[in-house]
Design a protein around this nucleic acid. Structure first.
Lengths: 201, 201, 201, 201
DNA sequence: AATGAATGAGGATTCATTCAT
DNA sequence: AATGAATGAATCCTCATTCAT
C-alpha cells in the first residue's frame, strides 16, 4: 500500500538490467562497456543503474552468479532427466548439457571466457570459484567411475578440470570459428575425446 | 642528437622493455599496468617507451609475438632432439615441451591466458592467430597419425585444438592451485589423457 | 489521501526531522550528510523530507534558526532570572548562559562553528545575521556599562563581537580538546578574561 | 642536461598553482571550486594539476601549510625586529603582526576561517595542528609573563587560545564588515582587550 | 635518444531533487 | 502524506599520448 513497486517488479527490473548488461558486455567487452551503455540498453538513465547495483563491478559479478546458476540449473535438469547414475553416462550428460547451454547463449560464453578476465585479479576469485563448483561435481562422477573400475586411476580433480576446460574452451572457440561442425557433433566429440582419447581401440 | 644507436642496441633496449613489461603485466594485469609502471621497471622515462613502441597495445602485441616465438623455438628444439617423427611421440614431445615452457615462465602464462583477454576484441585476432599456429602443427601430427591408423578418425583440427587448450588451461590453473602435482606428473597426465582418455583399456 | 495532518502534527514532524538532522550533521558534517542519512535518522523515506523542507540547504537554515532561537531563549531566561541589569553582571550572566548552552549540546556547536561554514558564501548571510543579533544584545550592555563608566571607552560593537567570538570559539575548541578544564571553570575564565584581560590588577 | 625543467622551475610552477588556487578558493569556496577552475586560473589544463598535487584535498592542505609558514615567518620577523623579550611586548608584537598579515591578504583568511571547514573532519586535524603551533608560541609568552607576575594566574593554554582566536575571528569578521575601523585601530584594540579586558583601570 | 611536463578525452560515481503511485 | 524509483548534472581523477627541450 506504500511501496510504489512490488519486490517482484524490482527483481524483474534487476533482471532486465542484467540481461541488457549481458548483451552489451558480450558485444563490447567489459572495459569498453560504460554504465551509460547498459542503462541505454535497459532503457534507464545511468543513475538508475546504481539503484540496483553498487558499481559496475558488482553488476558484473551479479551477472556471473546469475549465469552460473542458470548453467547449473540446466545441467542438473539434464542429469535428473537421465537418471542412470550407475553408468558413466552422467558425465556424458553433464558435458553435453553444458555444451548445449553455451551454444544456446553465446553471450554467456563471452562473459565467462573473455570479459571476466578484464576484472583482473578480482575475476580470479570469482571465476575460480565457479570452476571449482563444476569441477567438484565432475570429480565426484570421476571418483565414482574409478571405484567401479570404469575410469582410469588418475588424479580425479585434474581429470575433472580437463573435462570442464575442454567444454569451455571449445564453446569459446566456436564463437570465432566453428570448424564447420554442428554443436551436436562437437558435444559428442568432447565426450568421446574425454572417454577414449585419440588412440583407436 | 649526435650518435645514432646501433640497431643491435636498439633491439636490446626493446628487449629490456619487453621483459620489464612482461613482469609488470604478469603482476598487475594489462589494464592496471600503466606505461609509467613499465618505464619504471625498465629504468626508463615513460616518454621513452614511445620511442620503441607506438602504443601500449602495440607493445603488448609485440610481447605476445615474442613469447609465441620463444615457445615455438622451445617446442621445435624439443622435437628435433627427439626425431622419430613416424611415431606418435612427436605429439607427446610437443605437449611436454609446451607444458615445460609454461612451467618455466609463469609470467607468459598470465600474459597469454589472462591479460590478452583484457584487450577485448583486439586480442581475438592475435591470440587466435597464435593458437592457429600451434593447432596447425598439432593437426599435422594428428593427420599423420590418422593415416597410419594410430589416431582415431575425428576432425583433426578439433582434436588439435583440444590438445592445445588442455595444455594452456592446465598451465593457467597451476598458477592458482597446483593440486599438489608436479609439473612432470601433469605433463605425463596430459599426454595420457589426450591419447587414451579416461576409460581403462 | 484522506485525512490531513493537523498543523501541530506537521510541526512535530518538522521538529523530528530537524533533530535527526542535527545529530547527523554533527556526526558527518554538512557536505557528507545526505538527505538519505537524515531521512533514515528521522525514520522517514527521503522523498518525504521534501514535504517539509524545500531543499537540504533550506533545512539547514531552518536548523540554524531553530538553534539560534533556543540559545536566545536560554540566555533570556538566564538574564530574567538574574535581573540586576544595572550591574555588569548581565554580561556575565549572558556569557555563562551561552557557554552552558553550548556545553549542554555539542551538536549545535558543530552545527554553528563547523558545518555552517561548509555552505560557503550562503552561510555568511545567515551566520552573520545570528552573530549580529547576539552582538546587538551584548553591545547594548557594553554601551550601558560605558555610560556608567564601568566599561572602557572602546568601540562597543567590536567589544561585543570579541565577547561573542570568544565564547563560541572556546566552546568549539572544547569539542576537540578540553585542556582538562570543566565547563564551569572555562565559563568563569571567559568572563574574567573579558572583564579584566590578562594583566594583574 | 636531461631534465626539461629545473627543480626551481617545478617549484615555481607549484607555487603558481597554489597562488591561483588561493585566489579561486577565496572567491568561490572550497566546494564550489573545481580543479578545472584552478587550472584555468593557473593557465594549465586540469590534468596538469595532478602532476603537482595528488588530489584537490592534497592541494588544499599544501595551501594551508604554505600559508601557515608565511604567517609564521611574518610573525617571527616581527618578533626578532622587536626583541625585548622580557617585556609583555612580544605578545603585543605577535598579535599585531598576525593581524597585519591577515589584513594584507584577505584570501588567506577565507582559506583558513571558512574553506578549511569544508574539508569536514579532515580539516580538524590540520587546522587544529596549525592552531596548536601558534597557541604554543603564545603560551610560552604567557607563562613567561606569569613568572614575572605580569600576567594573571590563569590556565596559560586557554589564555593563549583566546588570544589566537580573537585575532582570527576579528580578521574574519572584517571580511564582511569592518565596523568602520582601520586595521591599526583594531590591532591595538585586540592587544588592549587581551591585556586589560573591558573594565577601566 | 631521452626526458618529463602538459594535455584532455573519457567514465564511474554521487546525490539532490522530482514525481508517479 | 508518504514512498522510493528514476533522473542526470556535476566533477574528480586516470593515464595514454604528445612534444618542446
Amino acid at each position: 500500500m506504500r511501496r510504489a513497486v512490488s519486490p517482484e517488479e524490482k527483481d524483474a527490473r534487476r533482471s532486465d538490467i542484467l540481461n541488457a548488461a549481458k548483451r552489451v558486455f558480450a558485444r563490447k567487452g567489459y572495459q569498453s562497456t560504460t554504465i551509460a551503455d547498459i542503462a541505454k540498453a535497459a532503457k534507464l538513465s545511468y543513475g538508475s543503474i546504481y539503484w540496483y547495483f553498487d558499481s559496475k563491478e558488482v553488476l558484473f559479478h551479479a551477472l556471473m552468479e546469475n549465469e552460473e546458476q542458470a548453467l547449473r540449473d540446466h545441467v542438473t535438469k539434464a542429469l535428473t532427466e537421465h537418471g542412470d547414475l550407475a553408468e558413466i553416462t552422467p558425465l556424458k550428460a553433464a558435458v553435453k548439457a553444458t555444451f548445449e547451454f553455451f551454444e544456446a547463449d553465446r553471450a554467456v560464453v563471452k562473459l565467462l571466457f573473455r570479459d571476466s578476465y578484464a576484472l583482473g585479479d578480482r575475476f580470479e576469485k570469482h571465476l575460480f570459484h565457479i570452476y571449482e563448483g563444476f569441477i567438484n561435481d565432475i570429480e565426484a562422477m570421476v571418483v565414482a567411475g574409478q571405484k567401479d573400475g570404469k575410469v582410469i586411476d588418475a588424479p580425479p580433480r585434474v581429470v575433472a578440470f580437463c573435462v570442464v576446460s575442454l567444454v569451455g574452451q571449445l564453446a569459446h572457440r566456436r564463437l570465432i570459428t566453428d570448424d564447420g561442425l554442428s554443436a551436436d557433433v562437437v558435444a559428442d566429440f568432447v565426450v568421446a575425446f574425454v572417454l577414449n582419447g585419440i588412440l583407436p581401440r
